Simulated assay, not measured.
Amino acid sequence: MRKEVATNLQFVDLLNQWDPFHLENGDYEPEIADTIQAVHELDDPLNLAKRIQSIYEFSFEKVIPIEECLLISKDLLVIKANQSCSL
Score class of each variant (00 low, 15 high):
M1S: 06
R2K: 14
R2S: 14
K3T: 11
K3V: 08
E4Y: 11
E4K: 15
E4C: 12
A6N: 08
A6E: 13
T7A: 14
N8A: 07
N8M: 07
Q10V: 03
F11I: 07
V12H: 13
V12W: 14
V12N: 11
V12M: 14
L14C: 06
L15Y: 08
L15M: 13
N16F: 15
N16C: 13
Q17T: 01
Q17N: 12
Q17I: 02
Q17V: 04
W18R: 12
W18N: 13
W18T: 12
D19C: 09
P20C: 03
P20E: 07
F21V: 09
F21T: 02
F21C: 07
F21M: 04
F21R: 08
H22E: 12
L23V: 04
L23S: 01
L23C: 00
E24T: 04
E24F: 01
E24N: 04
N25P: 03
N25Y: 12
G26H: 05
G26W: 04
E29L: 09
E31G: 10
E31H: 04
E31R: 01
E31T: 06
I32D: 11
D34P: 02
D34Q: 14
T35P: 09
Q37S: 04
Q37H: 06
Q37N: 03
A38W: 05
V39R: 01
H40M: 09
H40F: 02
L42N: 05
P45A: 05
P45R: 07
L46Y: 12
N47F: 10
N47Y: 05
L48C: 10
A49T: 06
A49R: 01
K50T: 04
R51D: 00
I52K: 03
Q53E: 10
S54Y: 02
I55Y: 00
Y56L: 12
F58N: 08
F58T: 09
I64V: 07
P65G: 04
P65N: 06
I66F: 03
I66D: 01
I66C: 03
C69I: 02
L70K: 10
L71D: 08
I72S: 04
D75R: 15
L76A: 10
V78F: 11
I79Y: 02
I79E: 01
K80N: 12
K80H: 11
C85D: 08
C85N: 14
L87K: 10
